[in-house]
Design a protein around this nucleic acid. Structure first.
Lengths: 110, 110
DNA sequence: GCGAAATATGTCATATTGGACATAGGCGAC
DNA sequence: GTCGCCTATGTCCAATATGACATATTTCGC
């Protein structure tokens, strides 16, 4: 696992080690986190591509800037539901979403 | 919208009409529901392919048969998180998940 | 540097979701 | 028909997610 990714995950509040399985993180949980992270990253990408600030997106979503920040960080306090709804609201296509999900798997394989 | 789908959605507790937008269902919400439904259907497909009962899958997930039934029905009391975790636990690949997500979009286009 | 805008982090109260349980419905074998 | 097995539905209350807010930190132009 790359150093930067580890840091991102840890900052997001996940317990992640270089040997995650020893730390009780099951394989599925790992895959789930990767997937969430991939979509969170996609959300940020898309928001920036739209030239929106977190606050502006939050307003569109009827949420708050802090929630958006947490979404993009894949914080453990945000659900996949919220991320997915946000992606759809910001106009992500199913194709893009699918692409990000596959990217998560590819990242794991590395 | 096809009759059967409407019935499935309504049974799942969603407010769905032939003119959903008049019933305050935003476009994004519609897309979200379709997506959830597509993954829920994928879960059922995969479970049956594995020859598991809902109770057996529930045991694997540390959940209950009724939760699994609700997941597969895309009940509004189940989150995408739970469905996704279940898919991963049952061994769905990112490719399969991506396929189901695209299928949801295709279904909407119809 | 400084200041301003954007983003990140922490906490709270309310709302939503989750497992468990009970019970109903469906469906094939006998 | 009824027995057994599977699935569906409804309701609890415990656990988690949410928006809001306050506050900290980063980033970037000057």
């Amino acid at each position: 696992m790359k150093r930067t990714k580890k840091q991102r995950l840890e900052r997001a509040g996940w317990v992640v080690g270089d040997s995650a399985q020893f730390l009780q993180l099951s394989e599925e949980e790992n895959r789930f986190i990767e997937l969430k992270l991939a979509l969170a990253t996609g959300l940020r990408e898309l928001r920036e591509r739209r030239g929106l600030t977190q606050a502006a997106l939050a307003h569109r979503l009827g949420s708050s800037q802090s929630r958006v920040a947490k979404m993009e960080a894949a914080d453990h306090s945000v659900s996949l539901d919220l991320i997915m709804r946000s992606l759809l609201t910001i106009g992500a296509t199913a194709t893009e979403i699918a692409k990000w999900i596959k990217r998560a798997e590819t990242a794991r394989a590395a």
